[in-house]
């Protein structure tokens, strides 16, 4: 794939996403946003965009570490705060997570990680109500496609500015936005335990999987065409399976159809209805 086919026009993307946040927050009749700031690149980009859209004083970034989170993460989050000028808070989630898992000591890392992600979500939505602020999402297109996120956890938001950008494009936007090098240069991590990295856990790199996703999703190449382009068939199969098996995470819950006006099937209104 030629590099130009994935290289974003970062100034255009910034303009579109700043406009998106500004107008959709205003459509909700609000002026403020709240988001989780992990110290990673995705939330840093969402934070910088929200600050530019609404003014930094209208954005509340909350860092929500657990006992096993890398202390460097909070430091990086604070760097993003000084870079963007947004309001900042730290809410430890260790007490409530430990209280829950005291009763289920055999829970594995996935259950613990999902619970933490959902705990953070409840905090963001609670602060959303308290501050009259919309929750801004921080899931990129790569992880949304691969299902590398927690349903109703980090995937929950009112507005997601970066959900149509692949991870490599998020990096490019982060550089354009002038975010701190410490955030851009470190390996992406869900930070559920010290030393965890996305790429090690998934077993492939973002460069590699984004190149494939661009061909598979954007250009709609099939398996034989991808093989002809030099992609390892096993890798292709694995990625395709991840996309298909996580489809449920990208849709609203199924509603059993009984009437002629089932919500979202034949009761179809814009989200911005009446705004």
């Amino acid at each position: 794939m030629p590099a130009r086919a994935s290289t974003i026009d970062a100034a255009l993307v910034e303009r579109l996403l700043v406009g998106f946040i500004r107008e959709e927050v205003a459509s909700a009749g609000l002026t403020d946003a709240v988001l989780g700031l992990s110290g990673g690149i995705d939330s840093a980009v969402s934070c910088a965009l929200a600050a530019r859209a609404l003014g930094p004083e209208h954005v509340l970034a909350i860092c929500m570490p657990y006992a096993s989170s890398d202390p460097a993460s909070e430091r990086d989050a604070r760097e993003v705060v000084s870079n963007t000028g947004v309001r900042f808070d730290v809410v430890e989630i260790t007490p409530q997570i430990d209280a829950y898992f005291a009763a289920v000591p055999d829970a594995d890392r996935m259950r613990r990680g999902n619970k933490m992600a959902r705990e953070r979500m409840t905090i963001l939505y609670d602060r959303s109500a308290a501050e009259r602020a919309l929750v801004i999402g921080t899931s990129n297109k790569t992880e949304l496609l691969l299902g590398y996120g927690t349903l109703f956890g980090d995937m929950a938001s009112a507005l997601n500015p970066i959900g149509d950008l692949y991870k490599i494009q998020v990096f490019a936007l982060a550089r354009h936005l002038g975010l701190p090098a410490s955030v851009i240069d470190k390996p992406p991590s869900a930070d559920l335990w010290a030393g965890q990295t996305d790429e090690e856990e998934m077993g492939f790199g973002y460069d590699e999987v984004d190149a494939l996703l661009l061909e598979m999703v954007e250009r709609r190449l099939d398996d034989s065409q991808l093989a002809a382009e030099g992609y390892d068939p096993e890798f292709v199969t694995r990625v395709r399976r991840m996309i298909v098996s996580s489809q449920f995470k990208r849709r609203m819950p199924l509603i059993a159809k009984l009437t002629d006006r089932t919500i979202n099937q034949d009761f179809r209104y814009p989200r911005d209805w009446g705004r």
């Binding site: 130009r4 086919a5 994935s6 290289t7 974003i8 255009l12 494009q169």
Partner: peptide
């Protein structure tokens, strides 16, 4: 949003620098 797609072609535009 990629530079391939947003590239301006053969001019003929009073303001090719527009985003």
């Amino acid at each position: 949003i990629t530079v391939d797609e947003t590239a301006v072609g053969d001019g003929g535009s009073p303001s090719d620098a527009l985003l």
